[in-house]
Design a protein around this nucleic acid. Structure first.
Length: 404
RNA sequence: GGAGGGAUGCCGGAGCGGCCAAUCGGAGCAGACUGUAAAUCUGCCGCCCUAAGGGCUACGCAAGUUCGAAUCUUGCUCCCUCCA
C-alpha cells in the first residue's frame, strides 16, 4: 500500500520543475499526504490541467502535461481536461481590437472541439472528463469577482518578474492580466481540485488557485509544474504562432521530419520531456553524444519514431521513417507525388505559382535563379521553359509535383 | 483633465525631402557542405510583365506643399507612458 503510493509519487514528480527546490519538496510532501488521505477515504484524486485555446491544434508542448494526466489516469485517478474557453478570452491582451475579440469567441469554440479530440490521442476517452470553463466562469457576478479579488494584494502581482520587467520598460500591463489568476483559481475551486498541473511559468497562477481555494474553505490543491518545451527552432517556446511547433495531429511524415529538424543541442531535453525512455538511458545518451559514440541523427530517428508511434501507430512510424530516408537521406523521389493537371501550355514559373509550389510568380523566378528547381532531375535555368505532361518537378528539398 | 511618445514590410526595429521596394536583426526560403529537414557558410527575401529592362502597389487614414515625400504641413483614427 505505502509502496504503491511511493511509486505514484515518483512517477508524478518525474520531470517536474518548480524553479525552486523548496517548493518541490513541499509539493512532494503534500502530494504524498493527499494520496494517503484519498486512499483512506476510498476515493481517487481529482486531477486537472487547463489549456487555453488560441490555436486549433495541440502540439508537443501540451503533451507534457497531458501525458502526466494520463499517468494519473493509469493509477485510477479522476482526470479532468479543462478547456479554457473563458480564460482564453482574457488571456492574451495583445489581441485587443473589438472585431478580433468577436472573431476570437468563434475561434475558441471551434478550437475547443479539436482540442478535446486530439487530447484523446493520449488520454483514455472513457475515463476523462472534458470541461469548458466558460460554463461556470461566465456565470460569475461582479460580486464574486470582488470577493476573489479580496484575496490578493497588488504587491503580490507586482513582484512577478515579468511584470517588473514591463514596469521598467514602461510597457503596458493590463488589468485583465491580473484577473486571469482569479479565473483560473475559480476553476480549481469549482472542480474541487486535489492536484493541478501546469507549465513552470504557471506556478504563480497555480499558487493563486491555492489561496482562493483556502479562502473559500477548500483544502488547497497540490501544484505540479513542468518545464516549458522549447520549439523546433531551439530558441523560443513551442507555439503555433511562432511556427516552431510539432502538432500532434500533423501527418506522420511531418511529425517525423520536423523532429529530425530539431537542433542537436535540444535533443536530450526532448527525450527527457517527451519520451518514454528511462532516465538511465537518457543519461547514457548524453554521455554517448559527448564522447561521439553515437550519431545524434540516430537518436533523433528513434525519438521521431517514438512520437509518430504514439500519435499514430508503429506501422505508420515505420513508413514515415522510410519516407524520410528515401527523400531526404538518399534524395530519391517519394512514393507518392501530388499530381497537377496541365490545361494549357504554361511555363515552369507560371506552373510553380499556379500550383502553389511557389507563393508568386516572382518567387518562382527567384527559386529558378537559385537553382532550386528541377524537371525530371534536370536543373533548369530558364523561367520561361515550357512544361510538358508527365514531368516530375522538384522545388527545393521537399516539394514535388507531377504534371498530367 | 494635463504633459509627452508612437503608428514602417511576417516580427522586432532603423530611416526623418531625392542615392528608399526601404539599413540592420530574427523568422522564412534557396544553394553549398554534411551526420539529418542539425550545425556552419553564402545568397534570396512586395507584386506583375516573354524580365537586358520596364511597370504597379507599399511606410496608420485623408488632403496639401514640392520637379520629387516613409521623410515637411494640416486634419482624422488608433495606441502607449507619465502626472492628476
Amino acid at each position: 500500500m505505502v509502496d504503491d503510493i511511493e511509486k505514484q509519487v515518483a512517477t508524478y514528480m518525474h520531470g517536474s520543475d518548480f524553479g525552486d527546490p523548496q517548493i518541490k519538496e513541499q509539493m512532494t510532501k503534500e502530494l504524498r499526504q493527499r494520496l494517503v488521505e484519498a486512499k483512506a477515504e476510498g476515493r481517487p484524486l481529482r486531477v486537472y490541467c487547463g489549456y487555453d485555446v488560441t490555436a486549433p491544434d495541440l502540439h508537443l508542448g501540451h503533451t507534457i502535461t497531458i501525458r502526466k494526466l494520463r499517468q494519473f489516469q493509469d493509477f485510477g485517478h479522476d482526470v479532468t481536461f479543462v478547456i479554457g474557453t473563458f480564460t482564453t478570452l482574457i488571456g492574451d491582451p495583445s489581441d485587443r481590437d473589438e472585431a478580433r475579440v468577436m472573431a476570437l469567441e468563434e475561434r475558441v469554440k471551434q478550437n475547443a472541439q479539436s482540442y478535446a479530440e486530439q487530447a484523446f490521442k493520449i488520454l483514455d476517452k472513457k475515463k476523462t472528463h472534458v470541461r469548458y470553463n466558460y460554463d461556470w466562469l461566465s456565470k460569475l457576478t461582479f460580486t464574486d469577482v470582488i470577493s476573489m479579488a479580496s484575496c490578493f494584494t497588488v504587491q503580490q502581482f507586482l513582484v512577478r518578474d515579468r511584470i517588473q520587467k514591463r514596469l521598467e520598460k514602461n510597457d503596458p500591463i493590463w488589468l485583465r492580466e491580473f484577473l486571469y489568476p482569479l479565473a483560473q483559481g475559480y476553476d480549481a475551486f469549482h472542480l474541487k481540485a486535489d492536484v493541478q498541473l501546469g507549465a513552470t511559468e504557471q506556478l504563480f497562477n497555480l499558487m493563486a488557485c491555492r489561496r482562493l481555494q483556502e479562502a473559500f474553505g477548500q483544502k488547497p490543491q497540490v501544484c505540479l509544474t513542468f518545464p516549458v518545451l522549447v520549439g523546433i527552432d531551439g530558441v523560443d517556446r513551442m507555439s503555433k504562432s511562432r511556427g516552431n511547433y510539432i502538432g500532434i495531429a500533423e501527418p506522420p511524415q511531418t511529425i517525423y521530419g520536423k523532429t529530425m529538424s530539431i537542433p542537436d543541442n535540444i535533443l536530450i531535453q526532448y527525450f527527457t520531456l517527451l519520451s518514454d525512455a528511462p532516465i538511465e538511458e537518457i543519461k547514457q545518451m548524453t554521455s554517448d553524444i559527448d564522447n561521439k559514440k553515437v550519431n545524434p541523427m540516430d537518436l533523433k530517428k528513434r525519438l521521431a519514431k517514438e512520437l509518430v508511434t504514439r500519435f499514430y501507430s508503429a506501422k505508420e512510424a515505420q513508413e514515415a521513417e522510410k519516407h524520410f530516408e528515401k527523400t531526404v537521406q538518399n534524395k530519391e523521389l517519394p512514393d507518392e507525388i501530388e499530381e497537377y493537371e496541365l490545361k494549357q501550355t504554361i511555363s515552369i514559373s507560371q506552373l510553380l505559382a499556379q500550383s502553389g509550389l511557389a507563393a508568386s510568380r516572382s518567387e518562382a523566378v527567384r527559386l529558378i535563379k537559385q537553382g532550386a528547381v528541377t524537371i525530371n532531375g534536370e536543373k533548369i535555368a530558364d523561367a520561361n521553359q515550357i512544361v510538358s505532361k508527365g514531368a516530375t518537378i522538384k522545388v527545393g528539398k521537399r516539394r514535388y509535383l507531377k504534371t498530367i
